[in-house]
Design a binder for these strands. Sequence first.
DNA 1: CGGTTCATTGACGCCAATCAAAAAACGTGG
DNA 2: CCACGTTTTTTGATTGGCGTCAATGAACCG
Lengths: 251, 251
Amino acid sequence: MQDQANLERLFNRMEERRPLTAAQKAELQRVASPPIVVPAKTDYVLEGARPSKSSLLLSGFACRYTLMPDGRRQITAIHVPGDFVDLHSLPLEVMDHTVASLTDCQFSAADHRDLMRIISNDPDLALGLWRLTLLDGALHREWIVAFAMNAVEHLAHLLCELFVRLKVVGLTDGASFEFPVTQEVLAETLGLSPVHVNRTLQDLRSNHLISFDRGRVSILDWTGLREVGKFDATHLHLGKHRDLAAMIPTS
Amino acid sequence: MQDQANLERLFNRMEERRPLTAAQKAELQRVASPPIVVPAKTDYVLEGARPSKSSLLLSGFACRYTLMPDGRRQITAIHVPGDFVDLHSLPLEVMDHTVASLTDCQFSAADHRDLMRIISNDPDLALGLWRLTLLDGALHREWIVAFAMNAVEHLAHLLCELFVRLKVVGLTDGASFEFPVTQEVLAETLGLSPVHVNRTLQDLRSNHLISFDRGRVSILDWTGLREVGKFDATHLHLGKHRDLAAMIPTS
DNA sequence: CGGTTCATTGACGCCAATCAAAAAACGTGG
DNA sequence: CCACGTTTTTTGATTGGCGTCAATGAACCG
């Protein structure tokens, strides 16, 4: 059992709104492969592919991105442990973007035939999986809104979002969390130049809202950061952790 | 039967990848309400609501938007006939944004209990509905990428996307289509100021890529517009109409 | 026909891109 | 543990895209 994938973070997320039965958890556990290790900065699912399985991120950070004709990379989603990174390929079949690791990652994969069997036999679980893919959509919409903000607001918004999502899966430590990515990755996420990301980070730091050092983000002023980033957790569709976004974390 | 909703445009979209059976079409038809008329510029589903039904757009243009704290409205999606505008509220339950009409619209609504029954009894149809919501997500991602472009490219991209989507549901006329919205709506969509949208339209016009007059968009140079907008239809997940994005429409 | 909405134009300012270079952190092998 | 090349962060100077403000003109509508 040592190499069995730990699905607790997925269960955390799925049980935000209603609990899973022991049988449902067992069924998901049954179709989850042992951990797959992927080093940092590696494409994991390619645009144009037709995956025969879908992968759950167990540890590390991953992203989805589209390569633009001029060679720039635009990141459209950042994934944290507990996220399915390509569950949408089950109904959509063809990948319209690439999934890559940002840090060293572990994934667990579930065969599409197994997943199809699950959704045929258990409409309740089917709805839960559907719901997970819709949470991605809700995040996409929020990112669109964030793109209409200026650089400082956009960055603050992103950090708020990551903090809450990581908190849900138990990956925060007080008011801080590990986020070992370069400023270039932030630039590709925010659609800014790396230089401007640097200046924007300095802005947030000089206003004592955050510190960001050696891959660790510490939120020094949660209320202030939320305000700057116009962050509203409605789109995260939290249930159990509903009050989490309002809370002021202690350091 | 005169007041029965015409679901052909929905069927068009759902049959991109695989045909629906007559029984499936009949089942969808059975749960679809008669047309609901909504005047232009009217909120139709409010943020925070818990819809008990989901609505299909039969005619007109609608959008989803989020109101920002400073009163600005950011549009996150534009809907064309054949689109479900809030099908995601079935698994997600709570609306995280508002749906509004842009023009006079007609909707047909399906009760969530009926839809739940369908997805429980027909996994195939469930997958088809799931797929529709994922197409929205794919569009969201493409919009994020488009936000990393400059104003001219972004606008060109949007017009390309609308053209192809309208073509799929038979709402184009040669190389042109009706799109009776103000430049302010475009501004709210692109995250630009109305003034700059005006200048950007003039740019496209002066390069003989489009004309846009009295609510009708005509594409004068499809190849050129696609190139400027870096438009790639992969994310539309077309099946039957796969070659549509590459085709040069005749006027 | 008159009021209202919408499209257009010009002047000016600011936010973020770009270019270039230096400093700091990191990784690796000796 | 230090030396070294590489990656990443930081800084400065300049440019350009888009926002803002304000006003005019055109289209629409009852």
